[in-house]
Design a protein around this nucleic acid. Sequence first.
DNA 1: GAGGTGTAGTTTGTATACAAAACTGTAATC
DNA 2: GATTACAGTTTTGTATACAAACTACACCTC
Lengths: 228, 228
Amino acid sequence: MSDSHEREVGARIRADIIAGVHAPGAKLREVALAEQYEVSRIPIREALRSLEAEGLVESRKYSGSIVAPSPVEDAEDLFEIRIVLESATAKRAAKRAAALNASDTPDGRWRELRKEISEILDAGDAAIGQERFEDLAVLNMRFHFAVAELSGSLSFISLLRQISGKIEWLYSLNLMRRGPQAWPEHREIIAAIDAGQEAKAAEVMARHVRRSRDSYFAMMSDEHPRTT
Amino acid sequence: MSDSHEREVGARIRADIIAGVHAPGAKLREVALAEQYEVSRIPIREALRSLEAEGLVESRKYSGSIVAPSPVEDAEDLFEIRIVLESATAKRAAKRAAALNASDTPDGRWRELRKEISEILDAGDAAIGQERFEDLAVLNMRFHFAVAELSGSLSFISLLRQISGKIEWLYSLNLMRRGPQAWPEHREIIAAIDAGQEAKAAEVMARHVRRSRDSYFAMMSDEHPRTT
DNA sequence: GAGGTGTAGTTTGTATACAAAACTGTAATC
DNA sequence: GATTACAGTTTTGTATACAAACTACACCTC
């Protein structure tokens, strides 16, 4: 998400799945994809293996791949998991910040990330000021992944990638609505991390994600008033 | 895990990483792996893309793949996430059981899985009776994945695959110790699911995983008495 | 001697080509 | 009429071959 960690084609296919270009249940034929994305089948296949491991695609041997069913049913539990996961990343990031503050060992990667986060936050403020709310979705994404990187844990990063892939699939539009009031919460999170306050960072992050969840369900019940 | 869902070579490489054949930080050269596992580079590369998405391997473009650092540091939080995740799978499985009990719609896949679980449980009992504790690790794995499949949620299955991949890496040996007393807890979980008791299933599963976590940390402090 | 530059060699990325399995529709049989 | 057997087609799986990028070490310049 942040850097070019992603294999090019895989990222594009993922984006198209999330955007609905490839609908759930649709067959993903390798030659068709190869033509569409203008590469050979090899990169397509590698991308499909990644997406399969991420749970966005389902494959059976000699039988091809289909877009996985949308995880709407799992929304509640996915948010629950995300709360636990992101609390852990915030807590860990705060812990590392405290350690860095104590010993004055300069950490290049940390500074780099911290700077990137500041830029993300400023860009978000600017977007809100100019009412370009559509930019908030990707900025939000980048913020949460940057915090995960601050945590220094690869496990957390890969788990977050997987969960947020599914959640983004569900509600990328929602951020445009909640964005303006949610954005300032990010600064609270970073403040707690910078201060090395583990418990507070975890708590503030949990509250932030919980609000995001509530906003999602509010949106859902607006759009589908009686679908239980 | 359960069926042949796994690509053959990928499963073997994963197993070797978990078993320590490929140590954390080791470079994974494609030609070397191709020779070692007696296939061409193509299946190797696809396996690496899966393992990368699972967080067991780290890759950079044109620079190859290395085994990711062991997630020991994250153990506590990974268990925390696993508790939430597996509670959700148990709850969902119980919900589906209740739905099936109500409407007498016969679900082939359900019956199949349910039968497999019974066999797993019996096999575990037999293993304990004959003191073949080393078999419990894979049986335990299969049990938890089968429950995840009962939940019917692909999201949960792929998340469980990712988390348990990391956790198994940490403590596969531990099960041989705790196995004998932990095994009967599985029957409690299944009983609650069969009865369609969502809350109870979640609760029993959470307790089961919590005990597993405690046992893991007990083992760690035995082996490394003063490593803080 | 320190630092940059170039080149040889290694390693990954991708395309083409072929083999193996699955699917589909037709026809023959019960 | 339904079902099964079979062949043709389609689609995936894998190997080989080649191109592109990185790495390391020697060499040249300052």
